[in-house]
């Protein structure tokens, strides 16, 4: 009998023995990055509430993680998480969901949570397509790519998520690909320790849907594509927009300190209580 147990298995519910991700999916890399960040920060799963929406990446914490897990409706995890965080300001509230969930149907909640600077850590898995529902165009699908809902090539422009959330007011924003697991883990750690809204955009592979639509091929080919097309943000800032076409800008987009909403509420309630006495 093979007694080898994955070192991160302790963070999973014992009765959950399989995941719902396809072979080659980037979910596994992100799952490990999240759990490594938790382990390296010496945090307990009891310190967390994980909130996810609808889509393949929403299955990363749900029901896998041995913690409080809230699996919500499509597009709304950030809105649910906002209520959870205000009710439990001392807990880490992490949202794990996809680009369709968080920037299409749920885009409004995402920008407003960033504006409020509420202390959520959002791990946004961006695979550039709708995977679970069968390969439809997402707001993140590169222009020109043929999908089942853009069979003649997508005519629309795509979102550049990380800078969008910087503009919306987040305290911490980073973007890495699944080809950067160490940097990704570090970014999640930073997000978890940041007092404020933190978004970690994970550019990830969906070999089944995106690989086919983009004709990039399987997981390995897409990861190689990530490797050869990633440009550090420090370098990208010195480059021509034309040079950056088709590149993936990675790194930290913002890292600032500003008042966080749930602690501002704690402060207000405390000061009103003091004032009354």
């Amino acid at each position: 009998m093979n007694a080898t147990v994955h070192p991160l298995r302790k963070y999973a519910r014992p009765h959950v023995t399989r995941t719902t991700t396809c072979p080659g999916c980037g979910n596994g890399i992100a799952t490990q990055a999240i759990l490594r960040a938790i382990e390296e920060l010496d945090l307990r799963m009891d310190d967390f509430v994980f909130v996810s929406g609808i889509g393949c990446s929403a299955w990363i914490p749900s029901p896998f993680f041995a913690a409080d897990t809230l699996h919500t409706t499509h597009g709304r995890p950030v809105a649910f998480a906002t209520g959870v965080k205000l009710g439990l300001p001392e807990k880490h509230v992490m949202v794990v969901s996809g680009d369709g969930d968080l920037t299409a149907i749920g885009g409004n909640h995402l920008i407003h949570a960033a504006r409020r600077n509420i202390g959520l850590t959002v791990v946004l898995m961006n695979n550039g397509i709708y995977g679970m529902t069968g390969g439809q165009t997402a707001p993140t699908t590169p222009r020109g790519i043929s999908t089942v809902t853009s069979p003649y090539g997508s005519l629309e422009h795509s979102f550049d998520i990380a800078p969008m959330i910087v503009s919306a007011g987040a305290a911490y924003v980073a973007r890495w690909t699944t080809h950067h697991p160490r940097q990704l883990t570090k970014a999640i750690k930073k997000g978890l320790t940041k007092k404020g809204f933190a978004l970690i955009e994970v550019v990830t592979q969906c070999p089944v849907q995106f690989g086919r639509a983009s004709k990039l091929g399987g997981a390995v080919e897409i990861l190689k594509h990530f490797k050869s097309n990633s440009v550090r943000i420090e370098k990208a800032r010195k480059m021509d927009p034309a040079e950056l076409l088709g590149k993936i800008v990675v790194g930290e987009f913002v890292d600032i300190e500003k008042p966080e909403l749930s602690s501002e509420w704690t402060r207000l309630i405390h000061s009103m209580r003091e004032g009354r006495q």
Partner: peptide
């Protein structure tokens, strides 16, 4: 706030109901 509670003006009614459900699970 006078009684230790929180009021959140949300971006829309969808966020209102979702955050209220989240807060209920947080014990509110």
């Amino acid at each position: 706030p006078q009684v230790g509670g929180i009021f959140l003006q949300t971006e829309d009614e969808i966020a209102a109901i979702c955050s209220v459900i989240g807060a209920s699970w947080a014990g509110c």
